[in-house]
Amino acid sequence: MLTRNIRSAVLTAAVLLCSAVPALVPAAAAEPAAGGPGWTAAPASGAGTRPSADGRPYFYLEGAPGTVLEDTLALTNPGKKAVTVRLRGAEAYNTASGGSALRATDHSWITPAARTVKVPARTSARVPFSVTVPTTAEPGDHPAAIVAAAGGHETGVRVQLRVSGPTLSALTVEDVRIDKGRGLIHYTVVNRGNTALTPHLDIRTEGPISGAHHITGRTLPVELLPGRRAQLTEKWPHPPALDSASVHLAVTAGGGAHGTGSASAVFVPWWRLAGAAVLVLAGTGGWFAVRRRRLRGKGDGTGTGTGSGPDPYEGDSSTRDMTYTDSEPATAGAAT
Score class of each variant (00 low, 15 high):
Gly256Tyr: 01
Pro329Glu: 11
Thr284Ser: 02
Val127Ser: 00
Val247Gln: 00
Pro32Gln: 10
Thr304Val: 03
Asp321Ala: 13
Pro240Val: 03
Val85Glu: 08
Pro239Arg: 00
Glu154His: 10
Thr188Val: 12
Pro32Cys: 13
Arg7Val: 09
Arg115Glu: 08
Asp141Gln: 04
Leu224Ile: 08
Thr198Lys: 15
Leu73Ala: 02
Trp236Asn: 07
Phe288Lys: 04
Pro65Ala: 11
Trp236Glu: 06
Gly286Glu: 10
Ala148His: 09
His238Glu: 13
Ala33Glu: 11
Pro199Thr: 01
Ala74Val: 11
Phe288Asn: 07
Met322Asn: 13
Thr252Met: 03
Thr205Gly: 09
Gln160His: 07
Glu70Gly: 01
Thr111Val: 02
Leu279Cys: 07
Gly333Phe: 14
Thr12Leu: 01
Gly211Leu: 07
Thr12Ile: 02
His248Gly: 10
Pro51Gln: 09
Ala82Gln: 14
Val159Thr: 02
Asp54Asn: 14
Val25Met: 08
Leu2Met: 03
Ser317Pro: 10
Gly36Ser: 11
Ser97Gly: 11
Trp287Ala: 14
Glu328His: 09
Pro310Asn: 11
Thr40Gln: 04
Gly227Pro: 00
Gly165Asp: 05
Gln160Asn: 14
Gln231Arg: 13
Arg158Ile: 04
Gly259Met: 05
Arg122Thr: 12
Ser19Ala: 05
Thr84Asp: 11
Phe59Val: 07
Leu69Ile: 05
Ala101Gly: 02
Val173Glu: 01
Ala30His: 01
Gly46Gln: 03
Ala47Trp: 11
Gly227Lys: 04
Trp236Ala: 02
Gly315Ile: 00
Lys81Leu: 01
Thr323Ser: 09
Leu232Phe: 07
Leu224Gln: 10
Asp311Leu: 05
Ala101Glu: 11
Val268Gly: 14
Val268Ser: 08
Pro65Leu: 04
Ala230Tyr: 05
Gly305Tyr: 04
Thr306Ala: 06
Thr76Val: 10
Pro199Gln: 00
Thr116Glu: 12
Ile6His: 11
Arg204Ala: 12
Gly333Trp: 00
His248Trp: 13
Thr306Val: 04
Ala44Phe: 06
Glu234Cys: 07
Pro112Asp: 12
Ala245Glu: 08
Val280Tyr: 13
Leu16Thr: 06
Pro22Gly: 01
Gly140His: 10
Thr331Val: 14
Arg296Ser: 02
His107Ile: 06
Leu295Cys: 06
Trp287Glu: 12
Glu234Ser: 12
Pro128Gln: 04
Asp202Phe: 05
Pro57Trp: 01
Leu201His: 12
Leu11Ile: 01
Thr216His: 05
Gly99Trp: 03
Pro166Gln: 13
Ala27Leu: 03
Asp202His: 14
Pro310Lys: 10
Pro51Glu: 06
Tyr58Lys: 09
Ser210Met: 12
